[in-house]
Amino acid sequence: MALLPLAEAQARLLALASPLAIEQAPLHQAAGHWAAEPIAALRTQPSRNLSAMDGYAIAHTDLPGPFDLIGESAAGRPYVGSLGPGETVRIFTGAAMPAGADCVLVQEEARADGKRIHLDGEGPGNPGRNVRRAGLDFDEGDVLVDAGERLTPARIALAAVGGHAALPVRRRVRIAIAATGDELRPAGATVGDGELPESNGVMLSALLADLPVDVIDLGILPDRLEALRDAFAGAEADILVTTGGASVGDHDLVRPALEAAGASIDFWRVALRPGKPMLAGRIGDGVVVGLPGNPVSAFVTATLFVRPLVAHLSGAADPLPTLGEAVLGEALPANGERTDYLRARRIDGRVHVAAIQDSSMLRTLARADCLVHRDPHAPPASVGDSVRILDLA
């Protein structure tokens, strides 16, 4: 069976499901979601002209003064009257400009003589100087966040200032995670010869922690077809993620168990290193993604497939990971037929690839802060060459 190219596999996975239903999330619960619809301003910011400096609100035509001090304007406590010729109001940063004033004489260029304010410097050079005009940030009706953009802390703050208390998002994604293998034992348990602490479940939960997901832990499933089938069929989730048992050995039962549970497999085996023996398909109303059991392979395939699938279901405009650029710290040989992701670390402005890339070596992954991307059949690369990287930091 021919291996499926990485980009084609990612496209086919995302095509298996559509974004989830829209709901309103309170601002304090919106972080990590993507905007399901354009978010427009419900108000103008600032709603009126404000002072950008501490000083004195004046009419530019009254320069060079002097000015009669008639009141004060502070943030939240505006001066309610208007200025007449030769008059000024003491004003503070963020305070509303009084009627009749069109600029601010900063306090460093002013000298007070009782209620008489004198120019003691160059003064504001033009009307509007040291003033934040109404609508400087945005006007009512302006789109503040486009549909499909991630709701970052800054965008949530922007929406709050724009008048919103809740935002349209896709509902949280339900993800069921199952580890398979008779050799696995719960983390922290005593392990015997040939046994192994299970790490993929906690790793995947941590990898998805910044996304709008609810994780359902199916625990460790034994290498028995009936047990796997029943667990898979009973998983009520938008995404079922399995780890291990997806290869071609006698004990690799995930694919037949999924099919026995009613799943339809869309693809199996991707031209990817690490992570070739992964699969994807539909089961019930959700998507199933079968990841390899080796922890590094599970991490890489989850980064390239599971996280983008969550982003897609959550309405992200660009769900696939973005590659950056870096300078290579040592030579690399030509690549083979599969897309390669090499564990690497930045040192002194260059990326250095780990000498051993075996997919069972979790310590190497833990020390890496990026993955060097190598296209299929990429030619040899030299020290100082530019390479594409997937940032893990």
Rank of each mutant, 00 (worst) to 15 (best):
I91L: 00
S73T: 10
G114C: 08
S73P: 00
E72V: 12
R155A: 14
T152Y: 03
G94K: 07
E87F: 01
G123T: 09
A187R: 14
A159W: 02
D113P: 00
F138H: 11
D182E: 06
A75G: 00
N130W: 12
R132S: 06
L151P: 09
G100D: 02
P212W: 02
L208Y: 02
D214R: 14
R133E: 10
P186L: 05
G188W: 06
A187K: 12
L208F: 09
L136F: 13
L144V: 13
A112K: 09
E149Q: 15
G100C: 10
H164D: 08
V169K: 00
S199G: 13
P197T: 06
G84T: 02
A74E: 11
R172V: 14
A179L: 06
D193A: 15
A74V: 09
T190D: 13
L151G: 08
L136E: 13
R172L: 09
R129G: 00
P98Y: 01
V161Q: 12
D210K: 09
L83Y: 07
G114Y: 04
R170I: 11
T180N: 02
L211Q: 14
L207H: 05
R171A: 11
A176L: 03
D193R: 15
A160P: 00
G121D: 00
D139L: 15
S73Y: 06
A147C: 11
D214S: 14
P98V: 01
A178P: 01
A160Y: 09
G81P: 04
R170W: 06
L208M: 12
T93N: 00
V213Q: 07
P186C: 06
E195F: 10
V169F: 01
D146L: 13
S82H: 12
A209D: 14
P124F: 06
V80E: 15
S73A: 13
E109R: 12
L196I: 14
V80H: 10
P186K: 02
A189L: 01
D182T: 07
A101F: 03
K115F: 07
V173G: 04
E108M: 10
G128R: 09
P186F: 05
P197V: 01
V161C: 06
E87L: 02
G71L: 08
E72A: 08
E140I: 15
E140W: 00
A179V: 05
A165I: 08
M203V: 03
P127A: 12
D210V: 02
E140C: 14
N200Q: 07
R77M: 06
K115A: 13
R150L: 15
L83Q: 04
P127W: 06
S199N: 10
D210C: 00
G76H: 02
L151C: 05
A134L: 01
L184M: 09
A112I: 04
A187G: 11
G125M: 05
